[in-house]
Design a protein around this nucleic acid. Sequence first.
RNA 1: GCGGAGUUAGUCCAGCCCGGCAGGACGUCAGCUUCCCAAGCUGAAGGUCGCGGGUUCAAAUCCCGCACUCCGCACCA
Length: 486
Amino acid sequence: MNYEQIIQLALERGFYFPSCEIYSDAPAGFWEYGPSGVSLKNKFMDLWRRELVRRDRMWEIDGSQIMSQSVFVASGHLSSFADPVITCQKCKSIFRADKLIAEITSLVVPESADLEQFDKVISEKDVKCPKCKGNFDNTKKFNMMFKVGIGPQSEAAYLRPETCQSIFVDFPRLYKTMRGRLPIGVAQIGKSFRNEISPRQSLLRLREFYQAEIEVFCNPNKLNEMDRFSEIENTEIRLMVDDDTIKQVTCKEALESGMLPNKLVAYYLALLVEFYRKTGIDVGKSRFRKLGDKEKAFYASVAFDFEVETTIGWLELVACNYRSDYDLKSHGTVSKEKFEVLDNDVKVLPHVFELSMGIDRSLYTILEHSFREDKENDRVVLSLKPYLAPIHVGILSLMKKDGLAEKTDEIFSKLKTRYDAFLDHSGAIGRRYRRLDEVGAPFAITVDHQTLQDDTVTIRMRDSMSQERIKISDIESHLADATAYP
RNA sequence: GCGGAGUUAGUCCAGCCCGGCAGGACGUCAGCUUCCCAAGCUGAAGGUCGCGGGUUCAAAUCCCGCACUCCGCACCA
């Protein structure tokens, strides 16, 4: 299984495909989900809700994608989510100004310096294009946020570059009205937008993408007061801290050895692994990688990336950032809103631990880890968990004639509103089974002549290709059990 | 954004060098056959040849520009 095979499957079977593909001016970095992809994505999101939002009694919100300029003044994205770049006048190569200056002159001009400072150093030290020795244009800021104009006056606003800003700005109202107590998770699924310089590899680096984010608001003085920790203390996670070796340890061990800073962080990392195990991703190929200071986002004080090994390398699926009080403090300052809350009669400004999940990348990884070439039977099988499969069950007539089709239609109409069922009468039965295998349908029910005599059907299992005969009246309970979320 | 390679049916690809009717395989659809794993037979649908311009009697083919995809570099708060 490799990237090419997955994308071919995605294109052929309606998982995902390029946006606006019939037009030649379609910009890069935008992809759409087809019917199979949407069905998989919806089920993935349901599983996320069950395993994280409900399990931990979080609050889920759904915020606007366009947010006011002040939000990003406060969040730091207007100043920090931009790179100083310089363009060579001759060969048009683009460089990060701070990085090129450091490389050539060993001078450190901070990324956040005024643009004039970069220009000054460049002219004083006579910095030339390393490729063609050409001169540079003046330094510019390239901000990765999409700016939009609101109303007839085109007032500045931005498409959110991360969904979590909605959670931060909504926090005061939520905490007042929803009767919470710390620590409390606030969750959101939605789209984010980043003007990436070079989007690549379909779902893996998009300009418009889905995030499932969780912000856990906590009392920084009580990070080790976490009763729920006992639920996960024996959950094994794979950690890469300080060096390049991955150590598989229980959360309890990770905490005791100091690999993880506190119970709260350990608890949520464990929930994440338990969630991903249920998606069918091989968590034996996963790791939490602790980020060094240079790699961390500007708001993070401690950060772990949850990464999974795929055929195109380690893929970051979730960024786990301890954002401290960075966000609430700055939103408080800019908006004058009060973000302090009472925690057992003591007023605290909550800190935030964040689990920022990339949905699109997760779906790609699920597809890749589920993809199987069964050479013996000359078929491709997507061994998705039954509860994630785009189609739960194929409903097939062995042949169209002798009333088999009518009987099949009857069964289909009983199931179609409760399950993702696919009705198919035409073509060779083996071909129909194989098509279902390719979209990961775990079951196929086939109506044959015996059905007309004794009201039984065969049910075929995708992975083993074995069949058993069950009563029509038992189909529903059978499917209910077999496709239930774990 | 730079360098390289590409872009032709749903998918994979041939045709391009050397300009002259738009092709193949698989897939899809319909019919026949067949009571269980991509069989067979018959037929059909499906194309702005990435987009725009130029050269030419004639462009998928030659030239120029652009977009997109992939690989490498850079970027990835």
